[in-house]
């Protein structure tokens, strides 16, 4: 599924990033790359998603999240 489909409280693994290379590199520099575990802290329309990545927090626009494929790893809270 894509990251945009994950709900607040979900924990997911990044499967692949289907974005232009510049954006994918920037995400990688921020730590978001295939194999990483993410916590979806907030996913509320129409706002960007707030993600937990280790101890850092990322804000990602909804369009971008639609291009990140993830695997769900835990039951929804």
């Amino acid at each position: 599924m894509s990251l945009i489909e994950a709900r607040s409280g979900d924990t997911v693994y990044v499967e692949r990033v289907e974005l232009p290379s510049a954006a994918a590199t920037r995400l990688g520099e921020l730590g978001l790359m295939p194999g990483e575990q993410l916590q979806v802290i907030r996913n509320q329309r129409p706002c960007p998603l707030v993600l937990g990545l280790g101890l850092s927090r990322l804000m990602l626009g909804r369009d971008i999240c639609g291009s990140i494929r993830v695997l769900q790893t835990a039951l929804r809270a």
């Binding site: 232009p20 510049a22 927090r57 990322l58 804000m59 990602l60 626009g61 369009d63 971008i64």
Partner: peptide
Amino acid sequence: GRGVGLIMELPP
């Protein structure tokens, strides 16, 4: 068109 969108760290 639609741009790449927001990529930003949320600092503490």
